[in-house]
Amino acid sequence: MTRVVVDVMLKPEILDPQGKAVAAALPRLGFTGFTDVRQGKRFELTVDGPATPEVLAQVRQAADTLLSNPVIEDVVAVRVENPADDAGQTGGPASAASGAAK
């Protein structure tokens, strides 16, 4: 099982009302010194097998057509993640394979 992560952010020139709300709340909790906050979206797409070039091509196409709106957003990253890495498990053949795809 492989997870492909897609990060989408509003374009830098587009005002981010959600990020502004977070930025306004931070100092109230004592988190000072942050000059700006921008909030984006993270999509996790899971496939059964490894992240083949075909799978990644499909993810990129989905990212450009549905997951983001190119008028206001940028796809800033498409990367492969192995869920086993998060669980702290030692790498078996599957994780080695997806690791190689990184």
Binding site: I14, L15, K20, A21, N69, V71
Partner: peptide, 17 residues
């Protein structure tokens, strides 16, 4: 209509949220 690209631009959250 903007998502369909029949019209230009896009809509984001109101500036006052």
């Amino acid at each position: 209509l903007t998502e369909s690209h029949l019209l230009p631009g896009a809509m984001i959250k109101n500036n006052h949220r």
